[in-house]
Nucleic acid binder design. Structure first.
Length: 563
DNA sequence: CTAGGGTTAG
């Protein structure tokens, strides 16, 4: 009865029957322990384990497997350590179930060598679950190569194996590899069918790539295989649609859900924030309170971002003041909010009065606002702090350099560039890509391997002429004067986003919306270029990278970067 | 009665 109710997630009745058991034995305790552990209440399981230790019943192998796993779910590794120590002292043997749980605990804690040692010691008792645990141990620390090595050489794979590897790629920024592996999974003859967990990872990967066509193909597989989507499944759909600029589909999916959790709200609000729809975001905040979904720290981050991007100072400030215990991230958002509308001195004062230690994000907001409003004094202050906090983040140097450039202080521009060289940081470059008719097209500076490179460069030159004629790139051309030849390409050269946008302009001539995706932070001069193109061509352009989303229309960007 | 996999963030 206890297990049956636990499987139906009815913990109240499970506990009722458990309490009514007149003479409990170890199996009764184990049933109730796992009822808690497997339904997301590991703390309750550990509390019950305390009761068990005070009873006449002694734990067995099964108990240890549950308890160790519960410890790692709670993040209380030291508790698990003390259990293992006691067991070793009493020379009590751990079953391979418990050892697999222990492996998982070491993995969660980041002790990869310890995890691997358990894996190796298990020897012949290794089964698919053990291999899976080791694979996710590797992906958790980002060691995809080692994970894949195990994946390739293990004797048998089940659906969890595939899910571990696919989500491993997805969570480490390898969205394309996640999708490729998913394709292998459904093509392989005797491999397991994908389940909801598979689809959640793959749909999210499509979202990160902005690959709506592939995303729709994945959704068709969900339907074909009659995979029932739970809240997380719907959440991943909201994410996909939001990232691909289909806000109507995102809203529709949200409305179709019968129950929504805090992630559903956060995801849709983030979508609105990325599109500059501040009012809709704030409306969702009151809606979720009305439905008794408690906002979490992510909710406040995305709401403040939405207000900031829409220039909604008063609304955003009210939200910030309502946060019970704002952390440094919330401060970073509110500095951004104030900074973008030009209230930089107020922003600086808030940093000075912060109850917590400000982190790089806080100074980053101030630096960015200083760039927008050309405040050299505060920009220098923020940058000098950031150079200490994160000396290898090239973005900070670029922002400061751009502040000097906009003021015509070329000596200082050169000085920052020299500092970069001395510290050994290089401006980040990377591939840009976009999806067109279900195919991903990649671009990088200087590369001419794309089939339409000639056309792309011709259009680029034409746009460059238009821009110069309309007086845009003035700052950048001036920068050229005092700079070494080798640096010219780095500073004013074409960026991969520009190539991608040119391609989009070429192939989607009739479309109003162009989607471009990039794997790195959108750099500022590219940002300027996109605003110009959208202005000159009278088109809406959606440009994005993994974390940011820029929707340009009439020379204005949804990220709020236009004051 | 037991171990392994999933969604959102500036």
């Amino acid at each position: 009865m206890v297990t049956g109710y636990a499987r139906m997630k009815d913990l109240e009745n499970a506990r009722r029957y458990f309490d009514e058991i007149p003479e409990k034995n170890v199996v009764s305790w184990n049933a109730m322990l796992s009822a808690y552990a497997q339904n997301g209440f590991p703390e309750e399981a550990l509390k019950l384990f305390d009761d068990m230790m005070n009873s006449r019943d002694k734990p067995n192998e099964t108990t240890w497997a549950i308890v160790i796993s519960a410890c790692s779910s709670c993040g209380d590794c030291s508790l698990a350590d003390s259990f293992v120590q006691k067991l070793n002292q009493k020379r009590i043997h751990l079953s391979y179930f418990a050892k697999t749980a222990l492996l998982g605990m070491y993995a969660k804690r980041g002790s990869l060598q310890a995890a691997r040692q358990v894996f190796d010691e298990l020897g012949v008792s290794r089964n698919t679950v053990t291999w899976n645990a080791m694979i996710s141990a590797y992906t958790r620390v980002g060691d995809l190569a080692s994970a894949r090595e195990l994946f390739d050489k293990m004797p048998e794979r089940d659906v969890v194996t595939w899910n571990s590897m696919i989500s491993g790629y997805a969570q480490n920024g390898q969205s394309a590899l996640a999708i490729d592996l998913f394709k292998d999974m459904i093509t392989a003859a005797d491999d397991p069918k994908p389940d909801e967990v598979t689809m959640v990872s793959v749909i999210s990967a499509c979202g990160h790539l902005g690959a709506l066509d592939i995303g729709n193909w994945v959704i068709s597989i969900v339907r074909k295989n009659h995979i029932k989507l739970s809240i997380s499944g719907y959440n991943s759909l909201i994410f996909l649609y939001s990232k691909c600029g289909s806000m109507n589909d995102a809203k529709r999916t949200f409305q179709e859900m019968t129950t929504r959790d805090v992630v559903s709200y956060n995801t849709l609000i983030a979508g609105f924030a990325a599109h500059g729809h501040g009012m809709e975001a704030v409306k969702l905040l009151s809606k979720m309170k009305g439905e008794f979904v408690e906002p979490d720290r992510v909710t406040y981050i995305v709401i403040l971002t939405a207000c900031s991007h829409a220039g909604m100072l008063e609304e955003g400030w009210k939200v910030f003041e309502s946060i019970k215990a704002p952390d440094a991230d919330h401060y970073a958002c509110v500095i951004d909010l104030l900074g973008r509308v030009g209230k930089l001195d107020e922003a600086k004062k808030i940093i000075d009065d912060m109850p917590k230690e400000p982190h790089a994000g806080v100074y980053g907001s101030l630096l960015n606002a200083s760039r927008i409003h050309k405040r050299i004094d505060l920009g220098e202050f923020a940058a000098s702090t950031l150079f200490e906090l994160e000396p290898h983040n090239s973005g900070n140097y670029i922002l400061l350099s751009n502040i000097y450039a906009s003021a015509g202080r070329w000596d200082d521009v050169v000085r920052v560039r020299e500092l970069m060289r001395k510290v050994g940081v290089k401006k980040a470059t990377g591939w840009s890509w976009l999806e067109y008719k279900g195919k991903l097209h990649k671009f990088i500076v200087g590369d001419r391997s794309h089939e339409r490179s000639d056309d792309v460069y011709r259009l680029l030159a034409e746009l460059g002429r238009k821009m110069r004629n309309s007086g845009y790139m003035a700052d950048k051309t001036c920068v050229l004067r005092d700079v070494e030849e080798e640096e010219k390409e780095e500073m004013v050269g074409t960026h991969s986003e520009k190539l991608a946008v040119c391609f989009a302009l070429l192939v989607t001539d009739a479309e109003a919306v162009i989607r471009v995706v990039k794997n790195l932070r959108v750099c500022w001069d590219c940002h300027t270029a996109m605003k110009m193109i959208s202005n000159l061509e009278g088109r809406k352009i959606i440009l994005r990278d993994n974390n940011r989303f820029h929707c340009f229309s009439d020379g204005i960007c949804s990220c709020g970067d236009y004051w």
